[in-house]
Design a protein around this nucleic acid. Structure first.
Lengths: 111, 111
DNA sequence: CTAATGCATTAGTGCCCACTAATTGATTGA
DNA sequence: TCAATCAATTAGTGGGCACTAATGCATTAG
């Protein structure tokens, strides 16, 4: 139960749990590429905050960057969501089994 | 971009972002039903902490409870994951099919 | 009845984190 | 050249959160 190991699921969950940071990811995702200045516009927070969020998202493997001139363009890295998908999908297996058991049971009762 | 509204996605993400609390959820899920005392055993934290985590999970719609005598038995509420699955379904382009199956399952479970 | 067990809740504490303001370095425009 | 723009980073701050210790309330056992 002692989980000191920095789990990738935890990293992704933590990165996306914050509404502001998740909104940044969503905007990056919806744009093919987007600069920091453009992300800052209408974000309600300062440019520094946006840069910090982008750093977190990058460390979580959720975004990638490309520098061009004095701009830095970010793009989404959807593969970064894989740990999350795997975690959730794990429960899908259980549900599947339970449903199957339930169906089997129903068939026995009402053949 | 100002997101003051307490989003259900945020609620679920936040609830599951903490490793200890997520471990509690996983143990609740793996057991059909489990008491607080049993959850506390081997959790590495006090009983009070477990109760607090269960309260958070309950408010996020991820667990439900059943009192019996002086025990309270918790069980998983899989439908609580629906906001998360829906969100990933939108952004996790690679795994949309996997998740679509999972969403169908959730609908079957929670009629 | 009395002691013990199960659970929730509270107050208190330390820590982490989201944010700002300011600075710095780099690049571009006039 | 000099000013302006873009982005990252830093120090500092407030607030929230995970946790403990302790208390209270039921319920059960002896």
């Amino acid at each position: 139960m002692i989980e000191a190991a920095p789990n990738p699921v935890t990293a992704v969950m933590r990165a996306l749990a914050d509404p502001t940071r998740r909104a940044v990811f969503e905007r990056v995702f919806d744009s093919k590429e987007i600069s920091v200045a453009e992300l800052t516009r209408g974000s309600g927070v300062t440019q520094g905050a946006i840069s910090q969020h982008l750093k977190s998202l990058k460390q979580a493997g959720l975004v990638a960057e490309r520098a061009e001139g004095r701009n830095v363009y970010y793009r989404a890295a959807p593969q970064g969501l894989e740990p999350l998908v795997t975690w959730i999908d794990h429960y899908g297996v259980f549900w599947r089994e339970r449903l199957q058991n339930l169906r089997d049971l129903l068939k026995e009762i009402d053949p």
